[in-house]
Design a protein around this nucleic acid. Structure first.
Lengths: 184, 184, 184, 184
DNA sequence: CATGAATGAGGCTTCATTCAT
DNA sequence: TATGAATGAAGCCTCATTCAT
């Protein structure tokens, strides 16, 4: 039978090498060596290299989105909720630097098309609801919701990068620049 | 002497194709065809493919930095100055979508190393001075200057992307989210 | 004991796929899927792929030769005998189009060597005797017996192909072109 | 500039190896070695392996058809004309054993599709005219013209094979078996 | 006997780079 | 300078075969 965690080993090896060398400078053969398996074995788990890239991207994106986009407890104010989501996101990014870098690389590469992005629509619902509600109740500025969503995401990414580089323990002061930027 | 503008034609062709297909899916041969010259000719102007990528990146990065980082007139307040720089940057990005995308792609790719980035230190002086001064005079929050610089850059990139996608004429309201985020 | 008819299922699957896609474009794995068994099972019945090809070829060639080369009843004239053999051969070919095509393909391929062909010497005795006798008794032209044998075989193959393509019910008129060609 | 006869050297090498080992057991790399060029060079002349196979087949088929299907002199009787064509064909086949074998192999392989065959329609006109005219004037039996064409071709192939194997100088007696078979 | 995951050699093809013209 | 045919290393992928279950 297919061995327990071979797919995970391929994922881990690919992620490490993609981030180190770039996707296109990482050969399937190299991935297989890093994963400690034969080249052909990768093709038992993935149709081809693009399929591997896509599935890796999806797996990572879902992981972060599941963290960020979990349904909130009823009692939370929208500011608190945003802060909680943002903090969780930062923590994930700081603890998964490779995953974070790969996600960024892929998102602006030609490997990331609309079809791929469409898979995550569901996850965005929580965040979208939060933003729409906060605009309506005049907690957020009256900006296009998509712009606010983009801003949140970009600011998160930017902060993760800064924290990863400087290893600072600060969090709250960075979050404040986001909140002050978008709050009414 | 080297013919008039052949280097520019190579740059233009490479930029277009790099953005369309990704750097590694763009062959030198394809670039030469797009530029209307022979394959070998590219090697009269560039040492190799990486050299072409680097020089293209440098050329673009300098273009945007020269726009953003020009010495301000004495009379400008720091808020006004930041706004002017930011506005110029947005306009450049919206008008040069390929250059903008290429710059982003390259910056997180393995092609962009520290040695390359170091070339732009000079250009950053203006901006750095602006940020340091504004922190000191309590116009900006007391955050690490590098974080503020990163935030400005990221916010700029994010907004260019949004405007390029939606073709909106709005500018000021987007700038306000940056300013509110970092001002004291 | 080896399960009932698994070898036959492999033969059938291989024959179908070899004819559809060519021998070298048919993988063992594909054959196993078509046969509804596991890949490794094929290696319980055949040493390797070449062995499968050879045994399939032998099995088919024997089938047609057994039909064509059965001992005649004493009373038959050589013309009648030839006609009977030829008719049987045509009928087999028309009813077994895959087998017929595979046999042709294999016979001119590098898979078919002298050692393989030698296995059928026995079967040819009847036909050889018929031809030699007919030449001696001046019923057939005084041509090299091997040439006549080749002619008979080729003409048979040609006619099967034509009938398979056109679905015609005609038989006798085609046989006549063979007989007129070689009879004294 | 593309060197004078490199395409021919590829053709010659491919033809030799295809016949010796079979098409699918002949790698592009092997062909390039036999031709004394680099592997990649083959792809300057052919799109891919199938393209090479097709173009080689077309080139050979056209060669033999041009020999066989040249317009006859007015004065020739149809029997004489058929004999001349047949003799020319036999001579070509005997002198080009590789080409002859490759043509046969390819014709019953999956590489030979209808689209490929359609390219030769023009060449067949002479032969078709000869056959139709001969049937009408009761020189040939009243058989389907396609069957007669097939018979001629098959008989030619069969005879070439026999002569190549036995090195016999005989010709006329073999032609007679064809003529007797189809003449009225 | 039967399975099918795993292997890794080998095939097809691409492409950065060179060099003779 | 400019050309583009030629090179051959390297990448993706297939598949005959093995072997632990």
């Amino acid at each position: 039978m297919k061995e327990d965690n071979k797919e995970k080993r391929i994922f881990d090896a690919a992620l490490k090498l993609f981030v180190e060398n770039g996707i296109d400078n990482t050969s399937i053969s190299l991935i297989s060596k890093e994963a400690g398996i034969a080249t052909g074995t990768i093709y038992l788990y993935f149709d081809n290299k693009v399929d591997l890239i896509n599935k890796l991207y999806i797996s990572i994106k879902k992981e972060i989105l599941e963290i960020i986009c979990t349904e909130p407890t009823e009692s939370m104010l929208s500011y608190d909720l945003l802060e909680k989501l943002w903090m969780d996101g930062v923590e994930w990014g700081v603890n998964n630097p490779c995953a974070y870098r790969f996600m960024m690389q892929t998102e602006i590469s030609p490997y990331c098309n609309e079809e791929l992005s469409a898979q995550f629509a569901n996850y965005m619902k929580v965040l979208t609801k939060l933003v729409l509600g906060s605009i309506e109740s005049k907690k957020f500025k009256d900006l296009p919701p998509e712009y606010i969503l983009e801003t949140i995401w970009t600011h998160l990414i930017c902060t993760i990068g800064y924290i990863a580089k400087t290893k600072t323990r600060e969090r709250k002061i960075f979050f404040q620049t986001l909140l002050d930027g978008i709050k009414y």
